[in-house]
Design a protein around this nucleic acid. Structure first.
Length: 419
RNA sequence: GGAGAGGUGGCUGAGUGGUUGAAAGCGGCGGUCUUGAAAACCGUUGUCCCCGCAAGGGGACCGGGGGUUCGAAUCCCUCCCUCUCCGCCA
């Protein structure tokens, strides 16, 4: 969330910045300013009273120790105590309202985010590799997979429902090999492996920004304040919630393989065929905690780490900068990596790498102590897919397919395909 | 699922309802001493909020939330978490 002090001290800057997302937060910012004025007013009043109460309490203690009568002061303080209670309870809803309003405001965009309102205005940064050429009409992955008997959507529909799949035989092995391969690559680039819980509570979802605005996107476990993770970002980023890290610990770089669960509410009729958009998919996620002044360069290296996987798999891809209107709620700057999909004759998102600045750190209360000044500041958090495993499998099947319906496997994966 | 114990500052660990933000020890930081280091000794050591240009002043925080009281780390309620024993179980 944004810094309350920043919002009330420069409300017009906040409004102007978020216009670039196509959002008008002027009314909500105004509300916050009004509430904050009221809040300060009450605080000043109640704290003055508390001061007098504290002083009286000490006087009472002294009198009692001396064996003298404190009844007159006691009587006076009764009224003060009630007034304090009244003011305190006035404060509670004000602060709760401010908090709720702040939670609804998206992150400020970095200055270099491209202007635009939709996907169409995203800026291509680079394209690597030529779109794969075929001497025959390439098939979509679900045809290849079903024909080979290694993807079974029908059975998944019976056993569970729509948007699930069984991977069998070679597909299952390939999926597992991809996970191993990705972890091995990132591990070699300084990421520490972490295997988090696949279920989190609502506080963690609020910490990373999924809650309260995107509640309907996650699966809730009935009867608990538990939710299936929509991405490893949630448990891994919240790993340091409510902590003050020493600066020498930074940057912290984690990689996590997890399945991800998304309700895909509102995407009915979109990508219904195949395993492009599933309720459950595997992903290797990269998460970084860094010093504020380093987050921009850490974003560049994060994208590089994700790209490395596609390079080694020799899959053609491009990198785009999301425009203001397409940038996610919590992000200040996002690169998407899109892999070539021959069946669609287009690029398909396979990774999203974002710099969240201090937005998540503020929500999750993750800070660090500056080594030289000893001052405490919020860290910056970043994360990116490295990569979405299911979609990588799609890309492999489609880009490496042969005319007879079979497909080959890149050499780098062979040692992970053992058993 | 049944029974019990406990949650205090970076850590260990005291704490009688009344100058307790909290003893003590460890750790950390600064200093004295030393050619340097260690040891010893001295000092220092949390976060958030409000007022203030600042200096400074004030408030809050002892797992979370509520209550009793002039006053709560200390009493009461509730939730969460950790640990031990029994049962069940991958």
């Amino acid at each position: 969330m944004l810094d309350l002090k920043k919002v009330v001290s420069a409300p017009e800057d906040v409004v102007r910045n978020l216009k670039r997302r196509g959002a008008d937060v002027a009314p909500i910012v105004q509300q916050i300013c009004d509430l904050d004025d009221r809040r300060k007013e009450v605080i000043q009043k109640v704290e003055k009273l508390k001061q007098s109460r504290n002083e009286a309490s000490q006087a009472i203690a002294k009198l009692k120790k001396a064996g003298q009568d404190a009844a007159p002061i006691l009587e006076k303080m009764k009224a003060v105590a009630e007034e304090v209670k009244a003011l305190d309870s006035e404060l509670v809803p004000i602060e709760a309202d401010i908090h709720q309003l702040l939670l609804q405001i998206p992150n400020l965009l970095a200055e270099n985010v491209p202007e635009g309102t939709s996907e169409a205005q995203n800026r291509q940064e680079r394209a690597v590799g030529e779109p794969t050429q075929f001497s025959f009409p390439p098939k979509p992955h679900f045809e290849i997979g079903e024909q080979a008997g290694i993807l079974d959507f029908k059975k998944a529909g019976e056993v569970t429902g729509a948007r699930f799949v069984f991977l069998k035989g070679q597909a299952a092995r390939l999926e597992r090999a991809l996970i191993q391969f990705m972890l091995a690559e990132h591990g070699g680039r300084g990421y520490e492996e972490i295997l988090p819980p696949f279920i989190v509570n609502s506080h963690s979802l609020e910490g990373t920004g999924q809650f309260p605005k995107f509640k309907e996107d996650v699966f809730k476990l009935e009867g608990f304040d538990y939710y299936l993770i929509p991405t490893a970002e949630v448990p891994v980023t919240n790993y340091y919630r409510n902590e003050i890290l020493e600066e020498k610990m930074l940057p912290q770089k984690f990689m996590a393989y997890t399945p991800c669960f998304r309700s895909e509410a509102g995407s009915y009729g979109k990508d219904t065929k195949g395993m492009k958009r599933q309720h459950q998919f595997n992903k290797v996620e990269l998460v970084k905690f860094v010093q504020p002044d380093r987050s921009s360069e850490e974003l560049e290296s994060l994208v590089g780490d994700a790209e490395n996987i596609l390079r080694k798999l020799e899959l053609p891809y491009r990198v785009v900068s999301l425009c203001g209107g397409d940038t996610g709620f919590s992000s200040s700057y996002t690169y998407d990596i899109e892999v070539w999909s021959p069946a669609n004759m287009g690029y398909m998102e396979i990774s999203s790498c974002s710099n969240f600045g201090d937005f998540q750190a503020r929500r999750a209360n993750i800070r660090y102590r500056d080594a030289s000044t000893k001052k405490v500041h919020h860290v910056h958090t970043l994360n990116g897919s490295g990569l979405a495993v299911g979609r990588t499998l799609i890309a492999l099947l489609e880009n490496y397919q042969k005319e007879d319906g079979t497909f080959t496997v890149p050499d780098v994966l062979k040692k992970f395909l053992g058993n």
